[in-house]
Amino acid sequence: MGIIKASKLIYDYIKRDEDGNPDGTRRAVDQVDIDIEAGSFVAILGHNGSGKSTLAKHMNALLLPTEGTIWVSGKDTSLDENLWDVRRTAGMVFQNPDNQIIGTVVEEDVGFGPENIGVPTPEIWKRVEQSLEAVGMTMYRHHSPNKLSGGQKQRVAIAGVMAMRPRCIVLDEPTAMLDPNGRKEVIRTIRELNRAEQITVILITHYMEEVIEADHVYVMDDGRIVMEGTPHEVFARTEELKSYRLDVPQVTELSWQLKKAGLPLSDGILTIDAFVDEIMTLYKKP
């Protein structure tokens, strides 16, 4: 069993009429089975409303399953006594950088999580320093979060989660509100954490470019997992991805179009380098 495992997970939102009385339900997550290995980089892709954020919130016990079970490092999230363990194991970073920073100074915000879990003062300082270092924000430690760019704020948010020493970080569309530079900055930080600190990363996104280097990709549509595999395997099924209203990376799209036009290219080309290689081998062939 991996660090996060879900079995037959179902979550129903309760719809309410104008007076607040329950009026039917909407199934946001439907019969989801996942098994995420510790130390891996997993991406969950999906269109808006596909249920990916709802699934993410289950990994931190912010939402509890209607049916089925989800275990975080072997602990059932629906049991009250596991709540704080689950939240310490799986940290969470949200979409809007402004709405998740609590402190008025960068270092104080990073210290907020450790303060909550009762870490002694000298240890908090050590963790704050290490976390800021890990995301490359040490030089901004005395700044006000309001003066930082979106990408920097997200890095502070990531440091805030890191300071709690989680084994796993769930990032719920961390780049959706950022400009391209900020997006690159955040993705680079996440990858670095995954590689250098062996933190399990679960990245929820709808940007295809961000999942190319993931170890495993899940695609969600209408609450269900509809595709899974390595990025290479998933992107090879370009047509299927399109039917779930997802766009493949530009270079994958180009090679797919060329292949359709008759060029003997392989499926699921993810990077420009791989594409150039393929074209060159074709070119050199007599």
């Binding site: 940290g91 969470m92 949200f94 809007n96 709405n99 609590i102 907020f112 709690m164």
Partner: peptide, 11 residues
Amino acid sequence: DLAMAMEARCY
């Protein structure tokens, strides 16, 4: 949003 973020950080 903030309440959720605070809860996620064990507040």
